[in-house]
Nucleic acid binder design. Structure first.
Lengths: 146, 146
DNA sequence: GTATCTGCAAAACATTTGCAATTCT
DNA sequence: AGAATTGCAAATGTTTTGCAGATAC
C-alpha cells in the first residue's frame, strides 16, 4: 500500500489541516499529485485537468503549487533548467532522470547516507539528491537494436 | 594549493586538448570560472568580463558555456529554477545554498557515500547532491541581533 | 458583504535562434 | 578566400504580476 495515499484519505480535510482553503481546483491539483507519481510539470498538470475543469488557467496552477510549497505539503524538483516539477512525496528520497526517455525514477534512501560534519554549524532545511543517465529500459532497447 | 588551478597552467593549451579553439573570449570565460569558485550565472560572468571585453555579448557566453559543457570541462548547477550556474570543478562534490545570503558552498564528499544497488542496471552519468538552508555566517548574524 | 480565489492579458526574465559582421588562418 | 566565431535583434518558453470578475463564508 502506498504510504502517501494511505495517509491522505480526505484531501479537503488534509488541506484544511495545513491552512489551505480546499477549493475544487486545489483539491484536484493535490489529488493529481497524489495519484500520479510522475513528478509533473505545470503543463502536465494543466493538460491532465483541462477536461475536468475547462476554465482552468495555468496561473491558478502556479498559484496553487506555490501555496502548497509554502505550506510544506509538496516539494519542488529542479533537474533541468526551465522545467520545474512537483511531487507530493515529502519523505527523503532521491531521483534518477533518464536522458533518453525523460522519465524520473524515485530512489529510496534508507537512512541518511551522507556524512555532513562539514555542515555541523549550518541549518539544513532541504536535501536534494539526483542522478542523470540512461535507465534500464532504454539501455535494453539500445542493445536489442544491435 | 588549489587542485584545479594547479592542473590547468596554460588555458589555451587546455582548451585545445579538449577540442575547443581558444579564442580570447573563451579563454577569459574559462579563466574566470577557474579563478572565481563562486558558481556564477551567465549574468555574473557577463558583468565581470564587460570591462575587459566591452563588445562581449551574453549570446557568446551562452555559446561558450554550452560548448564547455559538451566537451566536458565544466558542469552545470541547477538549484533554483531560472538560475543556471556553472563551475570548472569537475570532481564529485556537493553544494550548500544559503537561502539568506544566496552563497553556494562546496561540500567535499570523500568517497561516493551512496548505496546505489537499486540502480545497478542503470547507467549513471551525473551525480548531483545539494542542500539548502542557512549558513554558519547568516545564523551567527541572526543570533547577534537578538 | 467582505475576503479570498480564479483566470485573462500583459509583463518579466532566462535562454535560444537567425543571420550578418568580424576574426583567424 | 574560407571556415569558425562573435554579437545584435528577434523569437521562444516559463513564471510572475496586475487586475477584474466569480466564488465562498
Amino acid at each position: 500500500m502506498d504510504p502517501v495515499l494511505n495517509e491522505v484519505k480526505d484531501i479537503g480535510a488534509f488541506l484544511k489541516e495545513n491552512g489551505i482553503k480546499p477549493s475544487y481546483q486545489r483539491m484536484q491539483i493535490y489529488k493529481f499529485l497524489l495519484e500520479n507519481r510522475i513528478h509533473p510539470t505545470v503543463d502536465t498538470i494543466y493538460k491532465a485537468l483541462c477536461d475536468d475543469i475547462p476554465t482552468l488557467s495555468k496561473t491558478t496552477i502556479y498559484n496553487t503549487l506555490n501555496t502548497f510549497v509554502e505550506k510544506g505539503i509538496i516539494s519542488v524538483i529542479v533537474i533541468e533548467e526551465n522545467e520545474t516539477r512537483y511531487e507530493a512525496n515529502m519523505q527523503l528520497h532521491g531521483h534518477f532522470k533518464c536522458t533518453e526517455c525523460g522519465q524520473i525514477y524515485d530512489i529510496f534512501l534508507d537512512t541518511d547516507p551522507l556524512d555532513l560534519t562539514q555542515l555541523k554549524n549550518f541549518k539544513i532545511k532541504e536535501k536534494h539528491i539526483y542522478f542523470k543517465g540512461i535507465c534500464e529500459h532504454c539501455l535494453k532497447k539500445a542493445t536489442d537494436k544491435n
